[in-house]
Design a protein around this nucleic acid. Structure first.
Lengths: 141, 141
DNA sequence: ATACTTGCAAAAGATTTGCCGCATG
DNA sequence: CATGCGGCAAATCTTTTGCAAGTAT
């Protein structure tokens, strides 16, 4: 059983054959395609139909939304007008996007997390969510 | 002449009657509607047609894109699936969005800017752009 | 059983574009 | 005057939804 399928069970998310396939594909994403993998809906639909060619894109959309609302996967909106997805991780991370290649690098930085909480507090707010994306070009050595 | 119209002139952006109106509306945005004003395309089209009712929404789209590519205004993509705009400012700022009301608070924080540059550098990149949005709910006293 | 899901196609919402007459520099 | 611009409607792209039939618990 895939990691995401297990999480569904734990959270009481109802499972169907289609959802199991999508869960499996999402679970394997980074193992199969590398840690930089953040597939969009079309890409996921392609991968999913390799397993079961009858799964419709509407179901992919509905299932991704369901998983996201359950906190099982995360949606990103990098500057391109479509959503990209990745499985949720225990440790929060942010992204750096290579403006030339589109490659996505993940990073963790405690200082920046704390700073954000502090800034929100100073403005009179409790931080409930945040989005940090760095866009960069590779340094020449 | 509006501030944005002046910037167009300085940058050699061709001006027309329609563009002048849109430039004026954008220039006045925060003065008229408060510092939290970040209008979307529909809202801008409404404001613009109060001055000249024949300006089409296609022209608003084309002009906003033109201004944005010239660095005269900035586009934001807060989590709602449509673009919001504000005039570019000398000093860079980020945004905190009230998750309950949608209100937008602007803030400047030097520490967080420096930290981002440092993180990018550590990953082997030059930072060319970034997006930081905090989502928060108002603290009760 | 019965409430939830799926596939399909149509709809919706935001944004872009082709065309052609018109304005700008 | 030549090139670029604006208005309109149609097209595009991503995402959502109504409906009838099928499925999970």
């Amino acid at each position: 059983m895939s990691i995401i399928e297990e999480k569904c069970k734990k959270k009481g998310v109802r499972l169907t054959e289609q959802r199991r396939v999508i869960a499996k594909i999402m679970s394997e994403s980074k193992l199969t395609f590398g840690s930089k993998d953040h597939p969009d809906v079309d890409e996921l639909h392609k991968r999913v139909t390799l397993v079961d060619k009858k799964i419709s894109i509407a179901t992919v959309y509905r299932t991704l939304k369901l998983f996201e609302e359950s906190g099982i996967i995360e949606r990103h909106d990098f500057k391109e007008g479509k959503s990209r997805y990745e499985p949720s991780t225990d440790e929060h991370h942010d992204h750096l996007i290579d403006v030339n290649t589109g490659e996505i690098i993940e990073f963790v930085d405690k200082d920046i997390e704390e700073l954000q909480i502090k800034i929100a507090k100073k403005l009179g707010y409790n931080l409930v969510d945040h989005k940090l994306e760095l866009y960069g070009s590779k340094k020449k050595k």
